[in-house]
Amino acid sequence: MRITDRIQKHVSENRTGMVYDLVFAIVWVSAVSFLFESVFTSAPTWAFYMFMLAGIPAYFGFFISLNLAREQES
């Protein structure tokens, strides 16, 4: 199996998950960038990077809670 076939198969199997990941990343980075450009203008750079890194647990927390809510609903 060629590499292009494997990539195509992977993308076709995980299409919606990849879209959700991309949308979450874009929203998180946009929100943090907006906050640090308009609200926290005098904050140190390390705080900006810590907020960016906080997106990792926020991502997992959001999707785990979403799955739990779906399970409780059914």
Rank of each mutant, 00 (worst) to 15 (best):
P44C: 05
Y49R: 09
Y20F: 14
Y49D: 12
V39S: 05
S30N: 08
A31P: 03
S30D: 03
T16E: 12
P57S: 06
A54E: 11
F63Y: 07
M18F: 05
I56R: 04
M50N: 12
T41E: 15
K9A: 15
D21Q: 11
E37H: 13
T41K: 11
H10M: 10
A58C: 04
F51S: 12
V27P: 05
H10R: 09
L35T: 06
Q8I: 06
I3D: 14
Q8E: 11
R2A: 14
I3F: 14
I64M: 10
A43W: 04
M1P: 15
K9E: 15
E13Y: 08
T41V: 15
A47V: 09
F36E: 04
S30I: 04
K9N: 15
M50Y: 09
D21K: 12
L66A: 11
S33T: 15
S30W: 08
K9G: 15
M52R: 02
S12Y: 09
A43E: 08
A25F: 08
S30V: 06
L22R: 02
G55D: 03
M52C: 09
M52T: 03
Y49F: 14
V39A: 09
S74W: 05
N14M: 00
Q8G: 13
T45D: 11
G61R: 03
F24Y: 01
F34W: 11
V39I: 12
N67C: 08
V29K: 05
V27D: 09
V27I: 13
M18Y: 09
D5L: 05
W28D: 03
V29D: 11
A25S: 12
F60G: 11
Q72P: 04
Q8R: 13
S42A: 14
I64E: 10
R15Q: 04
A69N: 00
N67Q: 11
Q8W: 06
N14P: 00
P44Y: 12
W28Y: 10
T45W: 13
I64A: 13
L68E: 03
E73Y: 00
F60Q: 05
Y59I: 00
A69D: 00
S42P: 11
S12V: 02
N67W: 11
A58R: 01
V11A: 06
L22W: 08
G17A: 06
L22A: 12
A54Q: 13
S42H: 14
Y20L: 10
K9Q: 15
P57A: 02
W28T: 06
T4Y: 12
E37K: 15
P57D: 04
V32F: 01
F24S: 00
M1W: 06
P57W: 03
R6G: 07
R2I: 08
G55F: 04
Y49C: 05
V11P: 04
I26M: 09
M18V: 02
F60L: 08
A58N: 07
V29E: 12
L53S: 07
V39W: 10
F24D: 00
S30G: 14
I3L: 15
S33M: 13
A25N: 11
I26L: 06
Y59W: 08
A31T: 13
M18E: 02
V23G: 02
I3P: 10
I7N: 07
I56P: 13
S12C: 05
S65T: 07
V23P: 06
F40V: 04
D5G: 02
E73T: 00
K9L: 15
H10V: 02
